[in-house]
């Protein structure tokens, strides 16, 4: 269980204090696919950075299976929005980077990398270099790399935000397959309502200034997707449209950003 308890984050910037997260509580249980949804600037990345251990909390605490989080570690795999593959390593070596840090022998690394590349549909690309791949392919490599060290949870910050809508749907399908097959917990950030609905077993809707959870949903679209339903069937299903509009209303209802005193 990943437990976030009363997490608050204040940034100081240009003489102002920004209240990025306000006493946020969230549990992510085994097998959960939690999607954080919200407009830009509502603290989604701040929350993910705190879970990843990149950012300390101002107040509150985060524990993963009972251990307090004190910094980045291989128990939490991160997939970034920005391309963070190492340009001097080929795809297989990029995927196996964490295994190299763990001291695995080269042969074992390459074998494991091959299996993971298979999982993300890049079987024949182990010897390519990142700059030879498209954005979607690079993002798949990023997912394979994060899975390689067998983390307890996968953290993904708008990983498909830069992709075209067709590639994006392929990647959503792929991610759901990966989730279904590996049973990993996933914390996923997006600002697309449809993406949130399609992917999440749990959806938290956030609002900015200060960053808070204003609504929580459970959804089962992702299970249907994992069991073979198509994205189209899901989008056309009865409950999808009303839920999408309800969430849209919540996001639009957000109070005007109010300035905070320094």
């Amino acid at each position: 269980m990943l437990k976030i308890e009363n997490a608050s984050v204040f940034f100081e910037g240009r003489g102002r204090i920004v209240h990025a997260l306000d006493r946020l509580n969230l549990d992510i249980a085994d097998g959960d696919f939690v999607v954080a949804l919200g407009t830009s600037g509502c603290g989604k990345s701040t929350l993910l950075n705190a879970i990843a251990g990149f950012l300390p909390l101002s107040e509150g605490r985060i524990t993963l299976d009972g251990r307090a989080i004190a910094g980045p570690g291989a128990d939490r795999g991160v997939v970034f929005q920005k391309d963070t593959l190492m340009p001097w390593l080929d795809v297989a070596d990029n995927v196996a980077l964490g295994l190299r840090f763990a001291g695995l022998a080269r042969k074992a690394r390459r074998e494991k990398a091959e299996g993971l590349l298979d999982l993300v549909g890049l079987r024949d690309f182990g010897r390519s270099f990142p700059h030879e791949l498209s954005g979607g392919m690079r993002q798949r490599v990023g997912i394979a790399r994060a899975l390689a060290t067998d983390p307890d949870i996968l953290l993904m910050d708008e990983p498909f935000g830069a992709l075209d809508s067709m590639t994006r749907e392929q990647m959503q399908q792929l991610l759901v397959d990966v989730w279904h097959r590996t049973g990993k917990r996933i914390f996923f950030i997006t600002h697309s309502i449809e993406e949130a609905l399609v992917l999440g077993t749990h959806i938290i809707v956030m609002s900015p200034r200060p960053g808070r959870i204003v609504a929580r949903y459970r959804a089962d679209f992702v299970r249907r997707l994992a069991e073979g339903a198509s994205l189209k069937e899901i989008r056309l299903s009865d409950s999808f449209g009303p839920l999408r509009e309800e969430i849209r209303d919540i996001l639009h209802r957000d109070p005007e950003p109010k300035e905070e005193a320094a």
């Binding site: 980045p72 970034f80 980077l97 840090f101 390689a148």
Partner: peptide, 22 residues
């Protein structure tokens, strides 16, 4: 890029590995 260093840290890089490999 800071993300590259962060990526290496989440992959379990020690300080020395971060230095040598990234």
């Amino acid at each position: 890029p800071v993300e590259r260093a962060q990526a290496a840290r989440t992959l379990g890089a020690t300080r020395l590995q971060l230095f040598a490999h990234i």
